[in-house]
Amino acid sequence: MDLPLFYFLLLGFAILMYVLLDGFDLGIGILYPWFRDEADKDQLMRSISHVWDGNETWLVFGGVILFGAFPAAYAGLTSALYAPIMLMLIGLIFRGVAFEYRFKSTTSKRWWNRAFAIGSTVAAFCQGLMLGVLIGGTPLVSASPLDLLTPFTLFTGFALLAGYALLGCTYLVMKCRDERQQRAARYGRRLVWVLMGAMLVVSISTAVGSDEIWQRWFGGWHFLWLWPLPLLSVLAARLLYRDLGRVQRQLKAGALPHSRHEDRPFWLAVSLFALGFAGLLVSLFPAIMPGKLSYIEAAAPQASLQFMLPGVLIFVPLILAYTCWGYRIFAGKVEDFTEGY
């Protein structure tokens, strides 16, 4: 396989990993205002306090792969998206420090709750906004940040909020018990509808908005092998909705939910995201700066791509292995442990 394509796919993988992993922990931040009780908030935060740092590292990884393998795209994209990136980073700062300070505070807890919720929401919204902007083509560096705010980009911003919140709900269904689990399942069910609606709107307006993208989906025989994408999404959403409903019903009946129904929603939500991402890839490939540069034009010289290759091939599997190990050590429901350091 040629190296630029390999790095393009690696970049896609890094972004997807980021969206899935930081997605659920940003999602928990977004859901924070809906869990009023301090004890709830404690458990919510504890369910992710050992993993958020690793999750966010995928964002750094995405950034440096872009930097190392596609310097022109890194330079162009980050400077064109200056305002939303800066705002996202500041959001991430506030939510990141809230993990440390919330548990050590006595009087200022309220403020850390806010920092966590608002920071997560702002960061997620900016990410959705940037997605919307890029679907419409890379803006000029000189374009005012206000030009980036169109109905479509605002919509994608909110849609990503809903998506992350859904991931967060399904994670909580897996990690919590009783009342909290019940609530997460309830919110999750509503969010499935919201997310499916949003995916539909984004897909349609993307396809209608550009002839090229329309052709890619519906021209020639393309749709013949692309139809599984939307179909599987609907199927995943359907199953997800049903599983969450089962958890709710079992809890209402006073029984412990079957663990299959507790765990599966998370993986179904993950597959929804993965399918949506694949759809996006179909629409945008091979652009790395949509409307400006393809990944081939932006690729770094061969020497750089080759130099990174052993690192990627050795360390990415290793990272995945010890990340799984880390999650395994902290397996089980948060409520069953009182831990700290």
């Binding site: 966010e56 930097f67 190392g68 393998a69």
Partner: peptide, 26 residues
């Protein structure tokens, strides 16, 4: 300079940041 600095930082993330973050939780 992306072709020079970028790969060094990529190695930093691959060999260090993930390692720190992965074991920090434990």
């Amino acid at each position: 300079t992306g072709a020079v600095i970028g790969p060094l930082m990529a190695y930093e993330v691959l060999t260090a940041f993930f390692l720190e973050a992965g074991f920090l939780g434990v």
